[in-house]
Design a protein around this nucleic acid. Sequence first.
RNA 1: GCCCCCGUAGCUCAGCGGAAAGAGCGAAGGACUUCUAAUCCUUUGGUCGCAGGUUCGAGUCCUGCCGGGGGCACCA
Length: 581
Amino acid sequence: MLQGDVGLELGRRVAESLRSALGVRITPEQALIRPSSAGRGADYQCNAAMSLARTVGKTPREVAEALLAGLDAADLVEQAEIAGPGFVNFRLRDDWLGAQATRLLADERVGVPLAERPGRYAVDYGSPNVAKEMHVGHLRSSIIGDAIVRLLEFGGHEVIRRNHLGDWGTPFGMLIEHLVDEGWTTVEADHSIGDLNSFYRAARAKYDADGDFAERARRRVVSLQGGDEPTLALWRELVAESTRHFEQVYAALGVTLARGDNYGESFYNPFLADTVTELADRGLTETSDGAVCVFPPGFANRDGERLPLIVRKGDGGYGYAATDLAGVRYWTRERDVTDLVYVVGAPQKLHFEMVFAAAEQAGWLDGDHRAVHVEFGSILGEDGKIFRTRAGDTIKLADLLREAVDRAAEVVAERTDLDERQRGQVAEAVGIGAVKYADLANDRDKDYVFSWTKMLALEGNTAVYLQYANARILSVLRRAGEQPAEGAPIVLTAQAERALVLKLLQLPGAVASAVADFAPHKLCTYLYETATAFSGFYQQCPILKADTEDSRRSRLALARLTSTVLTLGLSLLGIQAPQRM
RNA sequence: GCCCCCGUAGCUCAGCGGAAAGAGCGAAGGACUUCUAAUCCUUUGGUCGCAGGUUCGAGUCCUGCCGGGGGCACCA
């Protein structure tokens, strides 16, 4: 979808022409304006004549000829000609392109429009478990979710971050008893657990080995669920301690989740009974094998029987179907969100389809309250299997991020004359950026292979490449000793300048499609193409030593604009753009 | 058994119903007294898993196969 950029403007002109010349009414999008593939001598092409030919009873070429005859676009089109079966190729005027680029230089949003109808989004992402260390399995949801949140906010939407913590359930009985054994009281706060995983394992081991402990743990679960205040106080301490750990990881990763975004399983606890009651009141529930179930239409199990969503288990407890339904009910009804977004792995697809179907039956989801599962594939090791340590253990996120920065530091040390402190900052930006970009640059539906070598490669579609291109630009601007003035005219003389400007003007379309499809990789692809276009320009067009003063100022402005686009794009992905490298 | 996702160059991946399918890596060659060579430029490389169908036009949409992965009742 091309929106808010050159393609849309051309589409408007073409639609207007077709209306006046042939009486055909189409939208600018339906004009099917696309960037022309390179080497054909055209910038954009219109593909509409072929499909319109039948409806107007003319040949495609006749439609194209009528389109050209009625076209009022001399201010932006240098040359338009019919080619092949009925393509219309446009070459845009250099002065018009330059003027558009000049205009963008003064535009904070670099041409990207705000949403026409801003929504209120609740985005579920992150979702670590309390009393466990974050591991590589939390990486994709955190990174993709955060990019989506940033993109939506930039689009002018209201966004509520929802970190769906695993903070409730039977394991908390043993965890809290273990806390008590460790001497925690709530009077003296400021506890810390050095290693959450060891803590969990120790509790588990005692539970399995010690019958008395197990019995205490079971009683503790009852106290917790019964709302016993001393128990709840200990539980809150445990959540707080875990949250501190999550925040450290989020800080290292550059993810914007904060403790105020915690909406864990426990949050929905008070709503579960009412949710089930409401489903029952609407006649949607049945009791099956002792469990209260909703059978949304269209789902069958392996024996062809209807597939249940168990909203209350046989033992009276509630499972995740109940929690998620209560969540939909809460966010649509109590918080009046327009859009629920779940950034959760692909294996959960069936679950969410069923939850959404049931929520629709219950009336919580409708045309004004939508829900979407933004699913993603797995991270694989270079052996093609699920990414783990060589020993087969899950990889701690903290360790992975430390390794990323260490590896980046080695690369940085080889090539820079920055001082040690600056080197550290660059290593962080490069290392973390590499991990995030590698995740975001691929179509999220697919599995991707985690490769240090590839993600830290200096060439190709990597974060470092983009960061380096930007750092070079900023270096030139520093040397210039001046910032290009707002409105500094951008004048196109060389082919490479033209190619760069055409790319820069396509930012709005790239952002729009990334948002529309919850597909950050579309923005990545665009940024990479932009950085490539800049590298070509940088190679061929001297900036500081341009032939004329006008050209020098124009090229400085172009460099400035490129840096703005790259920096903005990276920030929408949650990736830093260092000033120097 | 049913459902979902994926299959594009040797490898890792883009590709919006439109023209001779695009990058990077790899391989071969070239460009630094130069604004950051962490770069750039050549060359090399494709039965778009297979078979039908829809269409003026299919890598893209539909159906059926094949291959890989995932899911399918009381864990979340």
